[in-house]
């Protein structure tokens, strides 16, 4: 399948140049990092940009920066980089686990976390982790910088709050001590898009943060569920009540990948199993 659209390709070495190009082209320009979504869209003629800006020449964006309080993941950082980072495995285990569940190695070697949130498909695997971590998306245009809460980032299926002249520089993630899991529903063990996903974080004493993907128009935190669970020791009774709340916070659809009924059922199963796993991990950590 040939790409039918004609465009220019540029690979700037300076951030300023990239921002100028964006500012002069707006929607006509598309950012290329890993290309695992973009090139498919070009082949299917879903996008017809006039300019492709390859940001792999911007070496500052290819880094994972670690400080005591934050981890910042640059826009050029691939899922493989994430998986190979000891710091992320230790400090952001939910993101690590989500990254491992993305596609396959040949894709993860190219695809970036930032690209994942920019595609903003409802099934994006990295979203539940970034949501429970209360992450920030760092963007910049020619004149200013923004730090956008991940909770405000997704505005609809395949839609974000990013402006056409803005470039995402990276994602800033606050580091707090926790355990957790990302549970994903796929049609088999091999690579698949999430038909439902849930990220569960357990921290402090009986504090919980939970977020979903693929069971609503955008990935989201499950606040009612968190409010119910916070402060509670987990028992079978608590879990049974919590499972009822899940239904109120998700809006699964039926499509060729899965029925709404199964998505809904599996969210409860994954919640219960994921929660128990997280708590077991937390206890394991203490001993």
């Amino acid at each position: 399948m040939a790409i039918l659209n004609d465009f220019e390709y540029k690979k700037p070495k300076e951030l300023d140049v990239a921002l100028s190009l964006l500012s002069s082209h707006h929607e006509k320009a598309k950012i290329l990092a890993g290309g695992t979504d973009l090139v498919v869209y070009l082949k299917e003629d879903i996008l017809q940009p006039k300019l492709i800006i390859d940001i792999k020449g911007l070496s500052d964006l290819n880094k994972i920066e670690i400080s005591d309080d934050y981890i910042t993941i640059g826009a050029g950082v691939t899922f493989t980089d994430i998986i190979e980072s000891k710091n992320i495995k230790e400090k952001l285990p939910i993101l690590y686990q989500a990254s491992e569940s993305v596609a396959s190695i040949g894709i993860r070697n190219r695809a970036t976390v930032v690209g994942n949130i920019c595609s903003a498909v409802p099934s994006l695997d990295s979203a539940p982790a970034l949501l429970v971590y209360d992450s920030y998306v760092l963007t910049q245009n020619k004149s200013s910088k923004r730090s956008i809460s991940i909770h405000d980032w997704f505005t609809g299926p395949k839609k974000t709050t990013l402006k056409p002249d803005e470039l995402v520089l990276g994602i800033k993630i606050p580091v707090i001590k926790h355990t957790g899991v990302y549970e994903k529903l796929g049609r088999y063990k091999g690579e698949d898009l999430a038909q439902a996903g849930i990220g569960i974080m357990v921290y402090d004493t009986n504090k919980y943060r939970i977020a979903h993907c693929a069971v609503g128009p955008i990935p989201k935190r499950m606040k009612k569920l968190e409010d119910f669970l916070n402060g509670k020791e987990i028992s079978n009774e608590v879990v049974t009540k919590a499972k009822k709340i899940i239904t109120e916070e998700i809006f699964p659809i039926s499509d060729i990948r899965s029925s709404a009924e199964y998505r809904s059922h599996m969210m409860k199963v994954m919640f219960e199993r994921g929660l128990k796993k997280s708590i077991a991990r937390a206890k394991g950590g203490k001993s």
């Binding site: 396959s104 049609r187 088999y188 063990k189 091999g190 690579e191 698949d192 060729i256 990948r257």
Partner: peptide
């Protein structure tokens, strides 16, 4: 969306 098995399946 037409899932043929992988080495994991």
């Amino acid at each position: 969306d037409y899932k043929i098995p992988t080495a994991k399946d």
